[in-house]
Amino acid sequence: MAFGEQPAYLRVASDLREKIVDGTLPPHTRLPSQARIREEYGVSDTVALEARKVLMAEGLVEGRSGSGTYVRERPVPRRIARSGYRPESGAGPFRQEQAAEGARGTWESRSEQEGASAEIAERLGIEPGDRVMRTRYVYRDAGEPMMLSTSWEPLAVTGRTPVMLPEEGPLGGCGVVERMAAIDLVVDNVAEEVGARPGLAEELLTLGGVPGHVVMVIARTYYASGRAVETADVVVPADRYRVAYHLPVK
């Protein structure tokens, strides 16, 4: 194969992708069968199969049991705003962003204690196995799961205080900044790192994706005078949402 020349399966996938994007193959249309692809493009069964696999991995088509492979409806990406702390609200980031977008979101959560993994311990600046409060969230917009989040707070900081459980007690449901202020810790900065990876099976089951779909992961950590007081992983479907930042310049 000459330098820069695409393998046959990628050339076939590229042509089919173009037909999907320009509407020649509209949503819910059945993708040409493997035999049809083989005949139309003059390729082997293996090449036809690999081209279909590429389109499926890209989320452009989906298999339907006993029926075939169909073009998926392409969602119009929506914004998830990340705009820093707004002290007048007293709410956590999701509640602030929902209010800003005029949306009516709901969420459910579950908290439990566990020993910190090596990764979480490093992010929090504690020792592996130290006790943390882990809280898992599912956020919904108009009933549709839109975002997952798992947060970890060191119990050396919050244990035996009124804010030990993020969603219970007098400050249940408030943001990290307000909750930490209640125990005399001033959160003065937050770090976020955005990455992407294939979604885990349990994540995609909740979010409504299919195996191979990509999710964005926002790894967020709040600090008070250099001490990490909360770290979280926020998981968002990459094909349905865009993360938009609006940050103040000081």
Rank of each mutant, 00 (worst) to 15 (best):
A2I: 09
E5A: 15
R11N: 11
D15Q: 15
L16C: 07
L16V: 07
E18W: 07
E18D: 12
K19W: 10
K19H: 11
I20R: 01
I20C: 05
D22I: 07
L25F: 06
P27K: 04
T29E: 08
Q34K: 14
A35L: 12
A35R: 15
I37V: 15
E40H: 12
Y41L: 07
G42D: 14
V43P: 06
S44M: 08
S44V: 08
D45E: 15
V47D: 05
A48F: 01
L49R: 15
A51F: 08
R52C: 12
K53R: 14
K53Y: 11
V54A: 10
V54N: 05
A57D: 14
G59T: 05
G63T: 09
G63P: 04
R64V: 15
R64D: 12
S67G: 09
V71F: 06
R74M: 13
P75A: 07
P77M: 09
R79V: 08
S83L: 15
Y85E: 04
F94E: 03
F94M: 07
E97H: 05
A100I: 08
A100G: 09
G102F: 05
R104S: 12
R104I: 11
T106Y: 02
T106C: 02
Q113N: 14
A116D: 00
I120G: 01
I120L: 02
E122C: 10
G125Y: 01
G125M: 02
G125N: 02
E127A: 15
E127H: 08
P128I: 03
P128N: 05
P128Q: 05
G129K: 05
R131K: 15
V132A: 01
M133A: 04
Y137P: 00
Y137T: 00
V138M: 03
D141C: 04
D141T: 10
G143Y: 01
G143I: 02
E144N: 06
M146Y: 07
M146K: 11
L148T: 00
T150P: 02
W152G: 01
E153L: 10
L155F: 02
T158I: 04
R160Q: 14
T161I: 03
G169E: 06
P170T: 14
G173L: 00
C174R: 10
C174D: 09
C174I: 00
G175V: 01
G175F: 00
V177E: 02
E178F: 04
R179T: 02
A182Q: 10
A182N: 11
A182D: 08
A182T: 08
A182P: 06
L185C: 08
V186M: 13
D188H: 04
V190S: 13
G195N: 07
A196R: 11
P198V: 10
G199V: 04
E202M: 08
T206D: 02
V210L: 15
P211R: 11
V214T: 12
A219T: 15
Y222K: 07
Y222N: 07
Y223P: 00
A224D: 01
S225K: 03
G226T: 11
A228L: 06
V229W: 01
D233Q: 09
D233H: 14
D233R: 11
D233A: 10
D233W: 07
V234Q: 01
V235W: 00
V235P: 00
V236D: 04
R240P: 04
Y241A: 03
Y245A: 10
Y245H: 15
H246P: 00
H246S: 14
K250R: 15
K250A: 15
